[in-house]
């Protein structure tokens, strides 16, 4: 997949719309002034767009744009990076929880055409989900218990 200019432009426009939503949501939820958060939001949008470009340029690498966005921000914010101080000062104005409400509102609406399907699986999904939750919790706990015992920590 090569880079499509029109597609990227549309993605940028929508990222800006999403950015404005987050600015409004976090103003209400966490009292962060809209103007003071704009530079940080611009940085966040630039990195998001960068992630989309990398994803489009490297289709063979099985990493979603989301992971590229995280990895880019991680590298920029490592303590020994000269970018860290400035980067974190600006992006601190974008609230972690503030970014989540629009995602989940879109996600909620996007399952709208599957409500019937979900209803048909519902009790199975609930049972599978409980098994998933128990699986990750006890899977990690058992391994941690064994390694901590071997290390002599517990």
């Amino acid at each position: 997949m090569a880079i499509s200019g029109p597609k990227l432009l549309n993605q940028l426009k929508l990222l800006i719309v999403i950015g404005i939503m987050i600015l409004i949501a976090q103003r209400i939820g966490y009292g962060i002034g809209i103007l003071q958060a704009i530079p940080g939001m611009i940085l966040v949008i630039v990195i998001s767009l960068f992630a989309l470009v990398i994803r489009a340029l490297l289709p063979k690498v099985q990493m979603p744009a989301f992971a590229w966005a995280s990895l880019t921000a991680l590298i920029l914010s490592m303590p020994f990076m000269p970018t860290a101080e400035v980067f974190l000062r600006f992006t601190d104005e974008v609230n972690f929880l503030g970014t989540t409400a629009p995602i989940l509102a879109f996600a909620g609406i996007s399952v709208g055409d599957k409500i019937q399907k979900l209803k048909s699986l519902s009790w199975k999904v609930v049972i599978v989900a409980i098994a998933v939750f128990c699986g990750t919790f006890f899977g990690s706990a058992i391994i941690a218990h064994i390694i901590l015992t071997l290390q002599g920590i517990i």
């Binding site: 990222l15 999403i18 950015g19 987050i22 939001m41 966040v44 949008i45 990195i47 998001s48 992630a51 989309l52 744009a65 989301f66 992971a67 590229w68 966005a69 995280s70 990895l71 880019t72 921000a73 991680l74 590298i75 920029l76 914010s77 980067f87 974190l88 992006t91 601190d92 974008v94 972690f96 970014t99 989540t100 995602i103």
Partner: peptide, 9 residues
């Protein structure tokens, strides 16, 4: 994507 950036930071 913005959440992904926040995870990184």
């Amino acid at each position: 994507l913005p959440l992904g950036v926040k995870y990184g930071t």
